[in-house]
Design a protein around this nucleic acid. Structure first.
Length: 266
DNA sequence: AATAGAGTCAACCGCATTACA
DNA sequence: TTGTAATGCGGTTGACTCTAT
């Protein structure tokens, strides 16, 4: 069944709003109030889709809209609220007077997310646990969990451990994701080929990295495993490392840099 | 000064939910 | 109770701006 379009696309204007259009919309809503968006364009003399009018009003023209840079306090609040609500931008916006859900969403996607990646300790996104930390990284998603995976001193035997189906099942369970196909949707853009380069150890991420950066990237507590060929076929990258982020804040930045350098992150 | 790439943000799209006849 | 229209929402796109080379 085909969804009926909300308006005739050939007849409506699209793209940036002109000042005259803003004036017409503001005047109309000022007289008649919000609502009846479908009928509004005709009544107000606008060649726009009703949805477009509503969006323009709520995100730009509505009185009380706060424009300009997001303050540090607002940013902290957004981070707190995102922990609580997730990507429920309208709910988050309710707690930030004058800010729109669209603005908060944009700010999160362009600014906050990157800051969180660069300094997970500062923003407290890393789980505080002494177990090995398992991080699944995709272009736009990061999920952290603490999974009980036995670590041994022998990288070879450890790799065998990681190849076991049960480990994979435990990991997915901890992440709250059971079937593999769910993971595929979430993570299908990860650059697995680049990560596979690390294979059994990330002591020295890559020769290229060393060449581009003068500082040492040695991290003797880090391991990187090709968990399962089938999983890699889904383009999923999983790294485990047992160093404590609180103990070594540089570690987070180093990992971020490595992922970023290898094109795993957007 | 020109160009490419990255960052930003307004606007669009389509699905989900709500309202109403 | 059901079907349809209206509205709300989150993800995505693309144009514009900024910055580095």
């Amino acid at each position: 069944m085909v969804r009926k379009p909300c308006c005739n696309k050939a007849e409506v204007r699209r793209g940036a709003w002109a000042i005259e259009e803003d004036m017409l919309l503001t005047e109309y809503v000022g007289k008649h109030g919000e609502g009846k968006w479908r009928a509004l364009p005709v009544n107000a003399g606008l060649r726009r889709c009703g949805k477009s009018c509503r969006l323009r009003w709520f995100n730009y023209l509505r009185p009380g809209i706060k424009r300009g840079n997001v303050s540090v306090e607002e940013e902290d609040l957004i981070i707190e609220l995102h922990k609580k609500f997730g990507s429920k931008w309208s709910q988050i916006a309710e707690h930030l007077p004058g800010r729109t859900d669209n603005e908060i969403k944009n700010h999160w996607n362009t600014t906050i997310k990157r800051k969180l990646l660069m300094d997970g300790t500062k923003f407290n996104i890393w789980p505080k646990c002494k177990k090995p930390r398992v991080t699944v990284m995709a272009e736009s998603n990061i999920i952290n969990t603490c999974t009980e995976i036995p670590l041994s001193d022998d990288p070879k035997s450890e790799k065998e451990n990681y190849n076991h189906e049960d480990i994979w099942a435990t990991l997915l369970q901890d992440l709250g994701l059971e079937p593999k196909d769910q993971m595929q949707n979430l993570l299908d853009t990860v650059n697995g080929d680049e990560m596979r380069r690390g294979e059994t150890s990330l002591s020295t991420p890559s020769a290229e990295w060393e060449g581009k950066n003068s500082s040492s990237t040695t991290d003797s507590d880090s391991f990187f495993y090709d968990i399962d060929e089938e999983i890699w076929d889904l383009d999923i990258g999983i790294s485990t490392f047992n160093s404590e982020p609180e103990d070594d804040p540089e570690d987070n930045l180093e990992w971020f840099n490595w992922f970023n350098f290898n094109g795993v992150l957007k």
